[in-house]
């Protein structure tokens, strides 16, 4: 069973520290989820004695993506935060080594790759295998976009 706790940003470090003190001493991962307008930062901790897990989340407005770094509280947070920073555009304040971890260069679009606004260019360039054809296309009321592909990405596509 995974315990889930959502905490306000101001409580983030304290909540992580409390979880660690309560036995959730091993950091599994830190990542984030783009909820559009809000980015949710997620930390998963494991209790090595009981194998129980604890998931902590905090929500940050997308236009103010600053989160205090957990590296002072949890050993091993540093790499996770570096990856989360470059993938979601979050600044982990007080991070001891905020260099990018995985991306060799920042994306040309300026949108961090795991944000929902980041266009999946392969999906624009390739034809969706699920595109209705023949009778099904005639029956479809309006052109169907593949799931996860946004209208605004397609407008840049060359007309076929």
């Amino acid at each position: 069973m995974t315990e889930v706790r959502e905490v306000p940003l101001t409580e983030w470090l304290r909540a992580l520290d409390q979880a660690r003190a309560a036995g959730f001493a091993m950091l599994d991962l830190i990542t984030a989820v783009d909820r559009i307008g809000v980015v949710e930062v997620v930390a998963v901790l494991t209790n090595p004695d009981t194998a129980q897990r604890c998931r902590l989340t905090t929500r940050v407005p997308a236009d103010q993506l600053a989160v205090p770094s957990a590296s002072s509280v949890l050993d091993g947070a540093s790499w996770h935060e570096r990856e989360t920073a470059e993938m979601f555009g979050i600044i982990f304040t007080g991070h001891p080594d905020p260099r990018p971890l995985i991306l060799r260069e920042a994306p040309a679009s300026g949108v961090p790759p795991l944000r929902k606004a980041s266009a999946l260019t392969e999906r624009v360039a390739r034809e969706w295998p699920g595109t209705p054809s023949g009778d099904d296309l005639r029956r479809a009321r309006r052109p169907q976009l593949p799931p996860g592909v946004r209208d605004e990405w397609m407008s840049e596509r060359e007309p076929a």
Binding site: W128, P129, G130, P132, D136, P146, P147, G148
Partner: peptide
Amino acid sequence: MICVQECPSWCI
């Protein structure tokens, strides 16, 4: 076509 449309990898 449901599987084709739901496949996240577009591999069907």
